[in-house]
Structure formats: C-alpha cells, structure tokens
Design a protein around this nucleic acid. Structure first.
Lengths: 244, 244
DNA sequence: CGAACGCTTGATGGCCATCAATCTCTGTGG
DNA sequence: CCACAGAGATTGATGGCCATCAAGCGTTCG
C-alpha cells in the first residue's frame, strides 16, 4: 500500500488527472524533506528568489503581501493539500510571503527537483498547474468580495467560502467549523480594520446569522446567510478528472 | 516559414517552455476557427458550462463577474496573446463573463480539442497552464490594490500596471499608451463609482502625475507616479523558458 | 505577576457612494 | 441639414460606511 496516494496533495491532483503508478512514484520522490514550522514565523520572505516551495500536509497558512506603508493584504489561506510558493519557483521571484497560522507540517520541494519532475512527468506538471488554476478561482472570488461588497456581506461571504473549502477536504460540517484565525487575520484578508471586523462580527451574531468566537465558526442560520451574502459555490465544483 | 510561431500566443508560451515543431503543429491544429466579435457584445455568459474557449489575437477584452444586486467587478483585462475562458473549460463551469472592449479577433477552441491536445502534448499543456499561472500574479496584484490602497493610489497603480503589461507585448512606451477603456470600465475594475473615478483622474491630472483623456494615457511624471502608488513591476519579470 | 496578545466598545472624522444636473461628442434618421 | 438620442464625461451637494484614535477587558505565558 502506497502512502503517497492518500496524501491530501495526491488526492487533490487526482481530481484533475488520473495519476499512473510511475507518476505517483515521481510525486513520492519529491517528498524527501518533511519539515515543521511554528505559528507566526514566516516561511518565505516577499521579494526573495530561488526559494524552495512547500506542499502543506498539516495546519493552516496564509499568503500575503506587505506594502511600503506597512499595511498588509492577505491574498489567500492554504489548507492541507495546498501548494505554497509554486509561483515563486515557476516565475523566479517570490511575489508574496507565507505565515503559518498554526504550527504546520510541510514537505520542502527544491526548485531544481520540481522542474526536473515537470520535465520528466509532464502529465504530473499538468495536474499540479491545473489544481493551481482552480485555486485561482478562489482568489478571483476574493477579489470580487473586496471590490463590490460592503463589510457585512464581505465577512459573511468569506466565512461561507472558507467553510465550503474545508468541506471539500473533509473538515467541518454544515453547521460550522473550527477556525484558528484571529480578527486581525480577518481584517487583513478583507481589507478592513480590526476594529471594524469586531463590529461586523457582533452585528452578524446579533442578527442571528453567524457566530465567530473562540476558534469556532457557527452558522446560526445558514440559508439566510447565503441569501444575505450572495454566496454561490459553483466555482468550487469539480466533477472528476478530465484527463484519464 | 510557420506563421503560428509569430502569433502573440505562441510567443507568450515560449517564455515558459521551448516548443518543439510537433508542439507548434499541435498548437496550429487548435487554430481552426477564427472569429470576430464586436465591442460590447459578450462572448461567454457567466454560469454557462460546456463553453468554448478563445485565444485573443487582436483587441481588448475584460473578464468580470456580476452580482445579484447588479454591480459588476472587472477581474482582469485581456490583451492579444491571452487565453479567454481557460478555466471555464478546465473546471466545467464558466465562472465569469467576457466583454470585448474593442472589436476583437479571436480563435475559438473547442473543449474537446483542447483536452485532446493536452493529453497528447503534455508539455504544451504545461506551457499553457504556466502562462495562466503568471496571469494569476496580476490578479493577485489587483486584489492587493482593491484591499489596501485608497482611490488615488489604486488608480495610479492600475494605470502603471496596465502600461507595464502592454510594454511586455510591445505596445506603448515609457511616456504613455493608447487605452480604449471608459471611466466606467475603470470604476468596475477598481471597485469605485464612475463619478469618483472622474474626480480621481482630475486630481491626478492636476497634480501633474498622469493624464487619462480621449483614449490616451500619458505619464506626466512617471517617477513621482511610481513613488506615489508604490508600484513594483517585479512580479511581471520572466527571464526566459525554464523548461527546455 | 507583568507583559503580550487578542477582543471589545465609544467618539470623531474623512473618503467615497449616491443623487442630480449639465455638457460634449458621435452617430442616426427624418 | 438639423433634430434627437445616447454614451461618456464633468461637477456640486449630501450622507453613510468605515478608518482612526483611545481606552479598557480577559486570557495566556514566560
């Protein structure tokens, strides 16, 4: 029995391309160095190049950019099975930073190894990039969220989306999920101040829509919440691998 | 002499993967149906599936999402060489719409043909997805722009970025570029009202930074503009193909 | 047990949405 | 040739959402 097949990463890739034994083996070869990082200590600094990339196997991470004035924007959150820093390898420049939100486990992948694997297993390369392409769909949704929704709807939509993503990898339920984010994380992700995040959460809670408290998100009235925020999970759908 | 090699699309892919003759030929085979669309008439409707995708050869397009309340958010602008609707093919759902901003020429690519080409030429697939990954870097920058910059800086940054992208395909110069966008396009891209876009443009013009008028963007003081907006073009860099 | 972190609440003000009116320019049909 | 419509641009007035400043609370941890 091959362990690699059951890793969150391999399961994710299998949604797009059916992997052969030799492709799984190539994937296994990338898993040489398992590492552990502590919450709050960055993996990759913005602007460095020739970085390694990571495959996240345990814990939560966020990717973000810092501006010259010190404000930061969280671009996305990563959960087990997600690739970290793929773009910094593919494009020779790390265009953002990564902060572990919890203690995490990740597999370090050297740039050279990844490119070699891509060259030898182009189907595997296709699978990896395909999965990255779906992750982009979430970034797009995040962008719409920032551009055209007020703070209440933005928060509601964000928490619903996060729940949907976690559900895809078997975490959480229809009624809620565990969530290690602080209100500061929410602020930096949603383009709000931490103070206003607090007020928004209070209002959503008092309106009986959703409760965010002590590491737990609870959908108090999921239907009304979906209605209120205009949430549409269609972009997360994936009916099965298109490349046999 | 093979025409396909000189298309903007093939040139773009060559930045990532050196294409062989047979891969160029596979690419050529995708170019069966050249079509023309008129400005303002959408190519792909949000929410439809089983759509064709397009390779843009001439003109400008924007991709956007519309919300239930009627507001729209422009996610990105496409210029010659860009792929339209790749994700709607790869993920079996079209998650946004496309509006031609000018009259355009595009090559229609059927879902089946694309998947077949991907299966037979995985290196070509890698190149296409790799290019898509770089385009995502621009969406990320756009997201930071929406989340953490005020309207003036947002506009300045956006117009600089657009200029840098056009420069990559040989359009425009250090002093400015032709730009068919209306103030409504800018508003929908930047998450602002059209009225405020007008005020912002006036202020930037009166401050001697940049002029947007009658289809032309002019950098009046490029250095100060870069400084003002915090623009950093690093994420657009690409030093040459990594896969030989 | 002090310090750090995260959360909470109040007061003030500014950025930007909204409503409304006007102007220019282009294209179109009578 | 002119009237008209429509798209795009422009400017003023008003108000609301949310940032900012400030202060205080509870909890955890070295």
């Amino acid at each position: 029995m091959n362990l690699i097949e059951n890793s969150p990463f391999a399961r994710k890739l299998s949604n797009f391309v059916v992997l052969t034994a030799s492709e799984l083996s190539a994937l296994q070869n990338l898993h040489k160095r398992r590492r552990i990082f502590l919450a709050g200590r960055d993996l990759v600094q913005q602007g460095q190049s020739d970085q390694a990339a990571y495959i996240l196997s345990e814990g939560w991470v966020c990717s973000y950019k810092v501006q010259s004035d010190g404000t930061r924007q969280i671009v996305d959150f990563q959960i087990p099975g997600d690739f970290l820093g793929l773009r910094s390898v593919l494009l020779r420049a790390s265009d953002h930073s990564f902060e572990p939100i919890t203690d995490i486990q990740a597999v370090e992948v050297q740039t050279g190894d990844l490119l070699e694997t891509f060259a030898n297993s182009p189907r595997l390369a296709t699978a990896v990039l395909w999965a990255a392409s779906r992750d982009e769909a979430m970034v797009v949704e995040h962008l719409v969220n920032l551009g055209r929704r007020d703070a209440d709807r933005r928060m509601a939509h964000f928490l619903l989306e996060l729940g949907a993503r976690l559900a895809l990898v078997g975490i959480g339920s229809q009624t809620g999920y565990d969530c290690p984010l602080t209100q500061y994380h929410l602020a930096d992700a949603l383009g709000l101040s931490a103070v206003h995040v607090n007020r928004v959460l209070r209002q959503l809670r008092e309106n009986g829509l959703i409760t965010f408290r002590s590491g737990k998100v609870t959908f108090d009235d999921r239907n009304r919440l979906v209605e209120f925020s205009g949430f549409d999970p269609e972009y997360l759908d994936q009916a099965g691998p298109l490349l046999k």
